[in-house]
């Protein structure tokens, strides 16, 4: 279970990291504000999950070598400040997070309790993103083309969400079911298979080069003096 917690926390850290960098650059002022609020939720959720592991959240967020992060390959693919890529990725990941949190919320104890509180906020995200997928998919040929391109670009990485986590086949099936209807409703398509377990990626520390760059940027100031207060 703690593997799943760390994987989800690292996903959320990187999603929040990437999306918060959009603040001030979004396509519509109102949506800029809304997506920044959700980026803050992701960063806050990462903090809550790191705490649940009994560790100092900052030490986990900033103090590990790149290979020790357990975020999946999907969350680190650069979006190049393209809103279609950003939205599709957030949509795919939000549904994955919902499923993992649903599972973590079962049972008694600290982690289930935290997970069930996060789940409520997670559902705000999926609802918001489902609506955006639908709107952009139905927003004319140009938008539809861009959205389909984003799905096509990200689909090969999406299966890696399920690398090295518990109940992967079951979760993959539930996730496919959850995203199918918003995607179809938007007039878009996405197909992903569950990759073979022998394929190593971010969840087992085999990160792409772009993550190593993102990690260096994210930890740059902190690393100037890890013992200092900032």
């Amino acid at each position: 279970m703690s593997n799943d917690v760390l994987a989800l926390a690292d996903d959320k850290l990187m999603l929040g990291h990437t999306q918060s960098d959009w603040t001030g650059l979004g396509p519509i002022l109102e949506e800029d504000i809304a997506s920044s609020a959700m980026a803050q939720d992701d960063l806050s959720h990462a903090t809550v999950l790191y705490e649940a592991l009994g560790e100092d959240p900052d030490a986990l967020a900033f103090g590990r070598a790149a290979a020790d992060y357990r975020c999946c390959d999907l969350v680190t693919v650069p979006d190049e400040l393209d809103w279609a890529m950003a939205t599709v990725r957030r949509f795919i990941c939000a549904h994955f997070a919902t499923i993992v949190l649903e599972d973590l919320a079962k049972g008694e104890g600290d982690i289930p309790e935290r997970a069930s509180r996060l789940l409520i906020e997670q559902r705000l995200q999926t609802e918001h993103l489902d609506a955006w997928i639908r709107r952009l998919g139905r927003g004319g040929d140009d938008a539809k083309g861009r959205m389909q391109h984003a799905f096509d670009t990200l689909a090969p990485h999406a299966g890696m969400l399920f690398e090295a986590i518990d109940n992967r086949a079951d979760r993959h099936a539930r996730w496919c079911a959850a995203i199918a209807s918003p995607i179809a409703d938007a007039g878009l398509t996405m197909h992903t298979d569950l990759p073979d377990e022998s394929v190593h990626g971010g969840r087992r520390g085999a990160h792409a080069d772009h993550f190593v760059e993102q990690h260096a940027e994210m930890t740059q100031v902190w690393a100037e003096d890890p013992t200092a207060a900032w």
């Binding site: 109102e30 504000i33 809304a34 609020a37 959700m38 609506a131 709107r135």
Partner: peptide, 20 residues
């Protein structure tokens, strides 16, 4: 205030801005 094309978006925006 805010600007939005319809009530669904307007409420989403209102929640994520003024609601927080």
């Amino acid at each position: 205030y805010l600007d939005a094309v319809d009530v669904e978006l307007a409420m989403q925006y209102a929640r994520e801005h003024y609601g927080l």
